[in-house]
Structures are given as structure tokens and as C-alpha cells.
Design a protein around this nucleic acid. Sequence first.
RNA 1: GUCCCGGUAGCUCAGUUGGAUAGAGCAGCCGCCUUCUAAGCGGCAGGUCGGGCGUUCGAAUCGCCCCCGGGACGCCA
Length: 626
Amino acid sequence: MRAANGSNPDAPLPCGPMSFDPLVILADRFSKAIAEAFPDAGNPDPMVSAGRNPKFGDFQCNAAMTLAKTLGQSPRDVAKAILAKVDVSDIAEPLTEASIAGPGFINVVLKPSSLGAMLGTLRSGDLGVEPVGKGKTVVVDLCGVNLAKEMHVGHLRSCIIGDSLARTLARVGYTVIRQNHVGDWGLPIAMVTAKLMDVAAAGRDIAHLTLDDLEKLYRGAKIEADADAKGLAAVKRFNLGPKASAELEEQVAGAEQSMAKAKRVLLDLQAHEPKAMSFWQRIVDVTMAACVKTCARLNVIVTTEHSAGESSYAEELAGLVADLEKRGVAEVSAGALVVRVEGIDEPCLVRKTDGAYLYATTDMAAIRRRVQKFGAERVIYCVDQRQALHFKQVFGSATRAGYATRAGAAGPSRLEHAGFGMVLGDDGRPFKTRSGDNVKLADLIDEAIERAERVVSEKSPELSPAERHTVAEAVGVAAIKYADLSSDRVKDYVFNFDRMLAFEGNTGPYLLYALVRVRKILAKAREAGIAGSGIVIAAPEEKTLALQLLRYPGVLASVTASLEPHRLCTYLYELCTSVSVFYDKCPVLSAPDAGTKASRVGLCELTERVLSDALTVLGIKLLDRM
RNA sequence: GUCCCGGUAGCUCAGUUGGAUAGAGCAGCCGCCUUCUAAGCGGCAGGUCGGGCGUUCGAAUCGCCCCCGGGACGCCA
């Protein structure tokens, strides 16, 4: 198990299945050493991490200080005792007292030969990615569009982050089911349907209906609904004299008529009355066609087969609520039906006083379907952080009701809200157009591509116009997506075209640039007939790059657990920086000797694979040239 | 009012399980293309980690109090 044979670089590493990851190997070695040196210390964390500073070595073990506290010994003595027991001679430079630094840090420097062997292991397999999701199903709730509304910045993050999470989970082996919880039911939709029926009745052609037309109808309906509500409020307050309110009353009367009609249409829809349904279906078709198109432009995998609208749960709600009532999970409170969950003060409303169901009711039905019908062990909601309390209530209620538990499962599935912050403008307020409207995603993408195209034309005039456009599409979208993915999900983030499309520094295009440069080297190597060989690490820039590559599986695992894609972004940026330095300092095709050439081509091949893999997981399209 | 989330360089952000001198990018200044794409690389400068107290060998990180900003709080979705 622990046989030291580091002298032979071609021999397989003397470790278990995770033998490519030095972090895992070292943690294991130190863990055993600590157990031998201090048998009574329990099984403490070996606290091995990558070195914070290259001058302190590649890895460090920080266990001595913590251990010293519990043992009442001096940290340096503890470190010495660990050193006496630890055996890393097969992969690292010999550890001596000089390896102990400061209060008791133990610094480890890997042997170049073992680094090469680890890279070989990484390369021969699936980049070291552990299929932790194999045989498991996860549902990812993303996108969340509404009928009769263009996609706007409010959908941007749900699509981009949700898509990346779905890709990450699929990458580690999960069976991923994407669900677009379309807002396609209820009074607002009935209002638009009623309006559309009016338009058609007035003889207007609706064969070429656009989403823009629908959105106008929606706005009109919303204004009337607001007028209706305001009118009622005004009447209730008694403080408007009949004379002063004459005009208002007229408006309100019109609004009341429309609302009455909308409510009739709602009943028709609920009864699946064919005429109302045909108009509703028209709205669905127009909206979803636009949604799917926009998602495709963003390289976000959402198609109509992922649609699971609120309407699809409508028939289940009465039964679900009856079940909750029958089993005493829900109780009547002030006329409404609520579910109370321990630890949450606010009860979860599942039925209004007037008998209608709510958002939470539909979400409970969705959880039941996703867990019990689809068999999800994890259900992930990529939805606005402001809905945190709502999901806390719904998760608690569904779990209490047993809907979150698969048949025969020991415990409930993991229900996770991967919430995200708002998209802000430069003024720190929600990102809007100058006129105060939501920014349409289609316009946002257009602008990013336009800006990218200007830069591509300037930097790469040798490309054909068609290719420039293809590159601009990939670069512009990469810029938007990386900007969104690269900061902590739960925080608000400031949207700024100039920054994300400056194409310098920490941006999506920088990552693509690194990939393109490596791919160019590989293309030229193929032309020259230079094949990649086993990797021999010699130059410091090669070593830095190698250490970064070895981190990849661990980073992927941490995103799988935390649902935080920005960790992968930070890693990718650091990796690309290492690639750039390597590119600068280590010529590949004009390396001094054939052996170095072949080794560096091998290193480029592995780098290309990791870069491509990681960018794909982020949902960024790959390029050969830019 | 109650609860949740934030506050790190001029700006935008990272910061792993509490670890060594708090890091990037942009903006500013100075260098590097006859050589695999300079959308790059190197250097300089820039900090009361919102404030205070505490926990300890060690705190941006944990605890308590306060300040500022945002959000959510039963009949919308």
C-alpha cells in the first residue's frame, strides 16, 4: 500500500483510485501519520491544503497547531512527531526539520517525477472526475419564464446559473432533469387570454401574433387590473367625493368589466373549455418559441420538453390539499388553509379563504412529482434569492407531508434553493433601460455580440466576415455568462458591458483566448507530426500549470456540493493565468529538444482537455480561433 | 417591528476547514512582440477587511453589540 517506488517514473502510483490528486494522497498519508504518532487524539482532520504561497512549498499540513492545543504540547514538537511517522518519500521531496515553518506548518514539495506520473493518471482516465452522481437523479428548476412576457434580465441568472449547475451535475454522473416552471396559469394569464379573444373578435389577424403583441396585451390587462384594485381601495377609503372621483369611476367601471371577463375566462380555462384553451395554447406557443430561441442563443439547454408549467399541476392541487387536510398536515387558520413547520414562524398558505390555491400549493405538487414520480434525490431551485423564505416554507411543508421522500427511501431527498442576487446597474439599483423598463434578454445578447464583433474585426481582421460573426457570438455570450457566473451567486452583481466586454483580465473572452492559443499549438503540432508523450515536468511554469490541472476534479466536486459555479470560474481563471505564463515562457514547437517538445505537446493536450471540459460545464461555447 | 443576506484597494470582485506578508481584474504609471495569436506577460503604486469588544498560538473568517445598504415577512406569483 505504501511501498515507496518513486524512483521509477513509469511505475503506477502506489495509491488508491484517487491517486491523481496529490491533495487526497497527502491528506491520507498525514492522517495515518497522526494516528500513529497520537493514537489517542481521535481521528483529527489532517488539514492538508494547497500551498498559499509557492515559496512555502506545494502543499502544507496545518494539523500540528490544532493538535498541540488539544494535547497541551508545543506545536513544533507535534509537527516533529508527525514528521517522524509520515512517509511521502515516493511522491515528495524528503521532509526534514526545515520543512517545519512558523508555528508548526509542515511544507511539502512534490517530486517532479511523481507530478508527471499523476498527470499521466489524470490523462489516461476521465480527467480524474469522480462519478458521484452515478445512478442518481437530480431535478434542476431553471429559467421560469411567464407567458406573454419577453425574457428579461430577471431570467438571465436563473438560466445561466441553472444551466451551469445542471451541466456540472451531469458531468459528475447524475441523471439531470431540467424543469422550466413556466408561469402559464392563473388570473394574469386569463386576463391576457381574454384580451386576445377580444382582439380576435374585433376581427384582427392573430395568425402572425408576436410575443411583443402579447406583451402589450399583458401590460394593458395589468393596468386595468391595477385600476380595478385602486378603484376598490379608493371606494373603501371613502375620502373621494362623488364629483372628484367621477373620472376615476369611469375607468374603474371599464376595468371592472374586463376583470369580470377575465375571471370568466379563468373558469373556462380551468374547465378546459376548447375555445379559451385554443387561445391560451396560442399564447403558450408564441411565448415558448421565443424562450427556446433566446436560451439557444445563450447556449442554455432549455427546450419545450423541459417545460413543466403551473398549468400542468392544476389538476393535482385539489387532491393534494385534500390529502394534507385529511392527514392533519394542514389546518384552517383565519379562513385559509395553512401548513405549519417547526422552526419556521410564518405558516405556509396552501389555500385562500376563497378556496383558490397558491404559488406554494403548486410548488408542493412540483416537489411531489419531482421526487416521487421522477425519483429525484436532489431537487435544485435556481430562483431569485428573495424567494428564500417561500422555499424554506415549501420545502418544510413538503417534507412534513412526506412528498419529498421517495418510496422506500430512508429519508427525504435534498431540496435546495440555489438562490441568486439581483442584477444591478452602475447606479447600484436594479438594472433597467433608461425608460425604466426591464432589459430584454434578446437586446442584451444583441448588444454583446455587436460589441464583440467590433473587437473581433479589429483584433482578427484576417478572419472571414462569416467567421468573425461566429466568433463574436461565442465571445459576446461568453462574456455575459462568465460575468454572471464568476461572482458569488447569492450576492447582487453589477452588470456592466464595458467591463465584461473589455476582453482583458478576468473575463470570459480571456478564458477562450487561453483555449484558442493552446489549440493552435496542438494544430501546428499535428501538422508537424509531433505527437504528445508522457509529461516530464522541468520548468517552474510547467510545474505551476501541472499543479493547477491536478486540482480540477476537486473543484468540480466542490461545485457539485456547494452549487456555486463561481468556484469553477475562479479556478479556471487561475488555470488560464498559468496557461498564459507557460505560453509565454515555455516554447512548445520550438523547444530545445525533441523530448521537451513531445512532453510539452502532451501537457498542452491535457490542458486543452481540462479547459474544454470546464468551459463546457460553465456553458461556454468553445472556439478554435478568435 | 421580526427575520434573512450583504459591507474587503478609486471601481468590480475572490479569499477553501480559523493559518504564514489579505489576493485578482479594471482604472493610473513603467517595461516586453523578427519567434506557437500582445484579447497576452512582467513591474510600480494602491487596505482601519463597516466600527467596537471578545474567543486563541493565530480572526476578513467564529461569538456578542452597534452602524450602513438590500430583501422578505398568510390570502400575488
